[in-house]
Design a protein around this nucleic acid. Structure first.
Length: 279
DNA sequence: ATCCAGGATCTCC
DNA sequence: GGAGATCATGGA
């Protein structure tokens, strides 16, 4: 099989895919991963510092997906300078990069994420794709488009396990199909305006909106604040004192500035894996 | 088994 | 505008 090598610094395939930002990958043998985005599917591995594409595919697209042009070395240096705690979080998973994922996938995925475990979110999305997406390759299905979901009822979402989130799903698809939610239109908006637009969808609060801002629109200054980041942040920066989400975001903005989104992902992954602040 | 999850909403004051 | 209950489900 054709192998194409890509030397991308500060990049670990496993850390980037498994740090919680992405739900559409599957681990294969020999530490390879199959990743799906839209209609595209690719199998990748890592040999030393090089990423290996197996079987070609749209390599320029995937380099963009993995944010290949950004210097994460500089970001990490800014974050870790004079911050030993962040240095520890970064050294725990120095190969995390923030993926550039598709808007509608992120919208639906993070609506389904609320009050839910990551393993279960993945299962939900897998069922959604199997049920309403198109077969792409083997057992992999594309993420359903808004049109493919346009006829799906609340009861149908309930039957695949979406639970109380089912009515949010219907509202999200309806609003996207009604217009004003194309990627081209949305990416012109300021971060605050875009957040407000996203939050006009029922079931999208600030946290879900911020995940979409960070993982789909590259708004790297946002700091998605969930239960984990709450625990970690209060534990490592506030001597265990809990802050309100508003206070926490203000503090994170002062501390990390334009790099807050990157900081969030390093901290989130570190805190979740180390169970920091639990028990 | 029973707890809890990458929260949002509704209701109450 | 903030605190508290409620929401479905299944992985751990």
């Amino acid at each position: 099989m054709e192998k194409v090598f890509w030397d991308c610094p500060d990049f670990s395939l496993s850390q980037t895919l498994e740090c919680g930002q992405c739900f559409r990958y599957q681990k294969e043998e020999d530490d390879c991963y199959t990743v799906i985005c839209g209609q595209r599917v690719v199998t990748l591995g890592q040999e030393g510092g090089s990423i290996v594409f197996y079987g070609g595919g749209d390599i320029p697209f995937w380099k963009g997906y993995f944010d290949g042009d950004r210097s994460y070395g500089e970001i990490k240096q800014r974050l870790c300078n004079d911050d030993p705690i962040m240095a520890e979080a970064v050294s725990f998973a120095p190969g995390i990069r923030i993926l550039r994922q598709e808007f509608f996938e992120m919208l639906i995925s993070f609506i389904l994420s609320q009050n839910n475990h990551i393993p279960r979110i993945r299962g939900l999305i897998q069922r959604l794709c199997r049920e309403y997406g198109m077969p792409v390759k083997g057992d992999f299905y594309s993420f359903p488009t808004p049109i493919q979901l346009s006829h799906v009822s609340e009861e149908a979402y309930r039957s695949i396990g979406c639970g109380f989130r089912s009515r949010y799903m219907v509202d999200a698809v309806d609003k996207v199909l009604a217009g004003g939610f194309s990627t081209e239109e949305l990416e012109k908006l300021s971060t605050d305006a875009l957040r407000q637009r996203l939050m006009s969808i029922c079931g999208v609060g600030q946290k879900v909106a911020d995940c979409i801002l960070l993982f789909s629109f590259g708004r790297y200054e946002v700091f998605p604040t969930d239960v984990w980041i709450n625990r970690v942040f209060s534990h490592v920066y506030c001597a265990g004192e809990k802050l309100s989400p508003k206070e926490l975001q203000k503090s994170a903005a002062e501390r990390f500035g334009e790099d807050a989104g990157f900081a969030q992902q390093y901290l989130f992954h570190y805190g979740r894996k180390m169970k920091i602040g639990k028990e």
